[in-house]
Design a protein around this nucleic acid. Structure first.
Lengths: 336, 336
DNA sequence: TATTTTATTTCAATCGTTTGCAATGTAAAT
DNA sequence: ATTTACATTGCAAACGATTGAAATAAAATA
């Protein structure tokens, strides 16, 4: 690696001390106009750039945010990263990305990586496998601000940003009922995830509102394309199959539509389907998918803003976790 | 921020010098077994973690890779990031992500950010707007290894990893011809991008092979869903509309299918469509899209491996840029 | 016992920048 | 001409860890 131009180089070339150069570069009033311009000129000429690493060491801060996320290759998460990066960029922060790949073990390693990299703060959406949160507690113990988004927990004293999952689910199921569905199934996420619970309870309460009996045997654990396709096949083959489906995400919903078509059922005539996410794929599927917009970009933005706010606070002795809820929206398309 | 435990704390608590502690922690043979175990024990007790920032400064290296990418919210790029992060993770590197959002201006700023953050190397796929590469040249001038992927240029002395765009395009168009298409249109990417050129020439040569005359008026600049949808609408309404379409990416291809359906044309009976990417959406569209698999994950892996290899080299006086081409594959589905 | 060898440990510089305080120089005030 | 004030600049320590060279201690040899 080529040696970068340092403040020392400028100093010696000008016969000055490093302190003077340092002050000149940042317009310290003590420095005479002559030396200031001379320093700045030479700095420009040599292409001097302050060494961030040295500053990091001195200031004990890296202006870097760590992001721990299940998988990037998922529209919702990439939308969130987009929002995060946008805010970070505007505030002159950089983002380090760590994928857990839905693995608890890897997530623990990620938290360590985030620590060794001495990031200023961390944004987390944890893996489906995660039930123990002590690795995140360790971050908090190190006084590194943590903001959870989407996949969050109440067990830790940390800020949260989530979509209004309950409201979204309620809207979705309410919509199905209004469209005439009598028997509505729910393809749910694992119940260790708060989003799994909230969406299930939104489903539950929407049924309740319309005096439809909640049935445990209409709730299925199926939150990926593959599992949902398989489950939908089984369910739709039965005589008394549901006429409405509320899936915990778009991929599962699309899998249901695919399965229905394969079995010769028409969507939305025979069965109606609502997803959750409003991904690109939702607008592409045939018929186009009615879904709940989760506003991933905004969620990312808010999470990052919240973290930056924490980073500005100097005193966190009276820390009170804040929970921000992003309203969701029903997007009606032709699958209902 | 809580002060972290340092080597100094351990030293003073044990009545030793920092040098001894440092050596003890890394099993230096000079250190006596007694002190070594004592140091290690206390280090474990206090939860000592070496300060990476201090090491960064000393070693003038951050074990960090900068990634400059047009947009994360695009399946192909997120697949690439996934591959990159995988390799980086395994080699104990971290990845900093910078989006250009297809903006030249922002891309220039990104290269500056990458410099100030003192990353060890950079992976780049440049924006559609980029025609001038001097900002990347600046990275190279600073002796920061740069590897370009997907969107690359021959103008700079840097490694490249690309999909075999020519071959992919050739396969796609050849397939359309074999399926009986007589008049094949191409929805192309901007021609300042190498991928735009290569895919066009693959299209051109496949026609040539089958003695089909290449017609300029069958090539359209349309590489997004919106532009493609609009173009397809216009084209398909004409009397002598094409019976085959080769689109530069899946989104454009899906837009063509959507437009065709809206105009009452059947796919694949009336027109056949091939995309490029093999995104999640390709498997979801109706009919499912025949496409070229670009192996984004592998492309990301290879690009990162290539960069890491460069980082290991100490002497780059006889630098010879390497270009790695990832073979593509035709994935036949029901749109042809 | 004196001297050499060997095993441990410490000193001090280094990485690049910042900053409180001391030191220098110069011009104004006495 | 001497003191005072003020404007500039330099010194040195600090951030945390590493490392060549010097220093000390202990053990081995003569």
């Amino acid at each position: 690696m080529k040696r970068q131009v340092t403040i020392k180089d400028i100093a010696s070339k000008l016969g000055l001390s490093t302190s003077t150069v340092s002050r000149a570069l940042k317009d310290h009033p003590d420095i005479s106009p002559k030396t200031r311009t001379a320093v700045k000129e030479l700095a420009g000429l040599l292409g001097y750039r302050p060494n961030r690493i040295a500053l990091n060491l001195r200031n004990n801060s890296t202006r870097t945010i760590g992001l721990i996320i299940p998988e990037i290759e998922h529209y919702f998460f990439s939308a969130i990263i987009n929002g995060i990066e946008e805010v970070a960029y505007k505030n002159d922060y950089s983002v380090m990305v760590f994928q857990s790949n839905e693995s608890y073990k890897r997530e623990v390693i990620n938290t360590q990586a985030v620590l060794t990299n001495r990031v200023d703060g961390v944004l987390v959406s944890f893996s489906k496998e995660t039930n123990d949160f002590s690795h995140f507690q360790k971050l908090i113990d190190n006084e590194i601000p943590v903001v959870f988004f989407d996949r969050t927990t109440e067990e830790l004293p940390a800020d949260q940003v989530v979509a209004d999952d309950y409201q979204g689910a309620f809207l979705a199921v309410n919509h199905l009922i209004e469209k005439g569905c009598k028997k509505i199934a729910h393809f749910a996420a694992p119940q260790n995830l708060q989003i799994g619970k909230s969406r299930l309870s939104g489903y539950h309460d929407a049924l309740l509102k319309h005096n439809i009996h909640f049935r445990h045997d209409l709730v299925f654990l199926a939150d990926t394309f593959e599992t949902a396709k398989k489950a939908a096949h089984d369910i739709l083959r039965k005589p008394e199959a549901p006429d409405g489906f509320f899936a915990v995400n778009d991929m599962s919903a699309i899998a249901i539509i695919k399965a229905a078509r394969e079995l010769g059922k028409r969507v939305p005539e025979d069965i109606k389907v609502v997803g959750f996410e409003n991904s690109k794929s939702a607008a592409i599927s045939e018929p186009e998918l009615t879904t709940i917009d989760q506003f991933g970009f905004d969620l990312g933005r808010e999470a990052c803003l919240m973290l930056l706010k924490r980073l500005k606070e100097d005193d966190n002795s009276d820390f009170k976790p804040v929970k921000k809820v992003i309203k969701t929206k029903l997007v009606v398309r032709s699958s209902t």
